[in-house]
Design a protein around this nucleic acid. Sequence first.
DNA 1: AGTTTTCTTAAGCCAATCTTAAGCGGCAGG
DNA 2: CCTGCCGCTTAAGATTGGCTTAAGAAAACT
Lengths: 221, 221
Amino acid sequence: MRILIIEDEAGIVNFLRQGLTEEGFDVDVAGDGETGLQKALAGVYDLILVDWMLPKRNGLEIVNALRSANTRTPAIFLTAKDTVHDTVTGLRSGANDYLKKPFHFEELLERIRVQLRTHETGTMLQAGGITLYPDQHEVLNNGEPVQLTQKEFVLLEYLLRNKDKVCRRNRILEVVWGLDAEHDSGVIDVYINGIRKKLGQPSDGGLIQTIRGVGYIVKDK
Amino acid sequence: MRILIIEDEAGIVNFLRQGLTEEGFDVDVAGDGETGLQKALAGVYDLILVDWMLPKRNGLEIVNALRSANTRTPAIFLTAKDTVHDTVTGLRSGANDYLKKPFHFEELLERIRVQLRTHETGTMLQAGGITLYPDQHEVLNNGEPVQLTQKEFVLLEYLLRNKDKVCRRNRILEVVWGLDAEHDSGVIDVYINGIRKKLGQPSDGGLIQTIRGVGYIVKDK
DNA sequence: AGTTTTCTTAAGCCAATCTTAAGCGGCAGG
DNA sequence: CCTGCCGCTTAAGATTGGCTTAAGAAAACT
């Protein structure tokens, strides 16, 4: 998720950048209104945090410009202007939220999540060239859609959710097949084989590696 | 625009009701959590204002229940609980905004407008050449009106609201038929078949795709 | 009450999917 | 170097689950 911060006070920028980066966001910064608007218009961001008072162009102008350019990227005002009139003006300009300084980072984070929630394409799991969308029930192999059966899908999803961790055979049986261990009939092997084939992966040294006597592991790289 | 207020303090209720009515909203009130949730689940409101502390069921439970029932009606918390932790919890439960008492009516009004603005897609649902107007109870297939029965309409509406997401059979049964899962008698298939026919869609690879063992998905594009 | 529409149930059919089983081959320990 | 275990691969049989159709039940309308 890419977030653009349009803010000129270095202290706040650093504070935000560090916190958001730690939370796993890609953060980009613009130090004045002009470059901020340019970047925002590019439309590559999932969310924009914008200060009101800025050099060259103020936050209000930026959000107004964005909306009249039909760009719907969610925008949150982050500003010291704290009168009701300011808030109303900010929101009316097309912003999606308005947070008064000083604010708690936790609250900002949650309000960001609210905005991203409505815009979310859903979570996804990735490893190597594989992307799996649980919500869409879809798997892409280097961008190419791959047709997996239900069991194959569930198995691959389990492996991906435990990326870089060993998945023991009995655990897989339990989770995917709902069987107690010691019922190992070799089903897993059949399905691993099927998945590897459909993904064009070798049975040895590929994305899904065999740990003899233990289980399997998906190694991202 | 219909707004539901779930709040037990008469003073606040009157204050809100009067202000919102003057602004042209249709206002409905529930005085406790139980009836509030019932009304909210009906899905006829455009927005819900909810207090946190309520008789019978608190606001948190209400919003949680709404979201897990897949009802996306925007909800705004309106509460005296003002710690950061409360705010975060409220927003995380699925609410769209969180306003601490005491608040200015002007700000509430603007925040309501923000929610209605972003959710204004409610007037119509589209995918492929299909357009569905929930309010008019009308469906167009490439501009040509299509005659759907009540159940067909509700089912298609549900699928379109969850465009590009898998709709699981048990979820469909629950939402459209009000049945608990494990009552799968094959009704869904009959109706999907009917809808596909009326829309001139193939049973395979068309707009409404079957995900074997899971459910259906409407893929736009 | 009669007629028409809509909803639900049931059953047969077929293809996708799952499971089992068996042969093969490599790796590890003796 | 042999032997047994374990995973790979394949194919055949069993099963599931969705599609389709039709007919009876319920609801809506006249």
